[in-house]
Nucleic acid binder design. Structure first.
Lengths: 189, 189
DNA sequence: ACCTGAACACCGTTCAAGT
DNA sequence: ACCTGAACACCGTTCAAGT
């Protein structure tokens, strides 16, 4: 009779209730983030993640009922990481440049998110949330240096300026130059 | 013996060399444009187009060796249509607003193009071509109203501003307001 | 030159079943 | 609660073959 230590049919446990749930979610999100940041939406594949983790695809579907939910959760994770870090410098332009650089790291993600928002309600809602959050954040930064009746349109223009560079092939320095110039012009009295 | 007029097995001719080649390409491109403009890259499917035209998928692959080539050709077609129409008004701001509106009609396409450029060399090259073309066009428009040493950065900022609105959920009027304000500020001496 | 048929390797998603 | 296995309907792409 075969020794219990010899397991040729199931080298991987079929179930892992002993592991912490958050830890398992974390594994999935980490794998998703890696793919998403490096290669955009096209690189995010549920099947591929399951393969890497040695799971069946349905193991992922247990935690995230659809790919869009995984996408939203991953974006949330990334944004939280960014927000945890605080920008250096006190001048508005420094803060804006800092955010522009942080966001630029995830430019393909930003684009991918908008692509999916056309089809998925979950993604559209999330994108709207992030947009208003970003708008309010920047409005707070500009409140002291821009006349009140111009804050909204200025904020919208600055955000468009920054995000617009995501669609171009900018180097780090080129983007900084354009954003700096644009910001100074847009916030002139 | 069966009458030659009864054809139960092949109601559609298996080949159509009698049709003009350009006309067949046109059919494919029209179908592709329809999907691309309405639903972005996700809605562009070679299989789906072939289904609509009553062809095998390989019939499409005969004219376009890969999906990326079909995408580029469709974008070319759309851009040519836009460029064929001339903007009204002589002031720079009128021209910019006109272009912003035209481009906005194909915002999902612009985003989809950038998404694919990360993976496909064909798309990347096309995107770069369009970008330089647009840059030169706008530089010509601004040459008379902006100091020479500022033209490049101003053009880059204006393009980023316009394209940045494609990533937001703007109505026609909101976009016009933001672009108008942004353009006036960016081109101030 | 032009097109079909069939296959390949990949998706996201779902159902039924197991522990 | 958690996970597997198998299937479904869809992709883009390729090969071999037909006219």
């Amino acid at each position: 009779m075969p020794s219990p230590s010899v397991s040729y049919a199931a080298p991987v446990p079929r179930n892992r209730p002993h592991l912490d749930r958050d830890e398992k979610v974390e594994q999935i999100l980490a794998a998703a983030e890696e793919r998403l940041v490096s290669g955009g939406l096209a690189a995010l594949s549920v099947a591929d993640i399951a393969r890497q983790l040695g799971l069946a695809q349905n193991a992922v579907y247990w935690y995230f009922p659809a790919k869009d939910d995984l996408l939203v959760a991953t974006c949330h994770r990334i944004i939280d990481k960014v927000m945890a870090r605080k920008p250096r410098g006190n001048h508005p332009i420094d803060k804006v440049l800092w955010f522009a650089e942080r966001l630029a790291e995830f430019a393909p993600l930003r684009v991918a998110l908008h692509e999916r928002a056309a089809t998925s309600k979950v993604i559209a809602a999330f994108e709207a949330d992030v947009a208003t959050g970003l708008h309010m954040l920047l409005a707070g930064v500009l409140a002291s240096s821009v006349p009140a009746d111009r804050v909204d349109v200025t904020v919208a223009a600055v955000i468009a300026l920054v995000e617009g560079t995501f669609l171009g092939n900018y180097s780090r320095k080129e983007r900084a130059d354009v954003v700096r110039f644009g910001f100074e012009q847009l916030t002139r009295p």
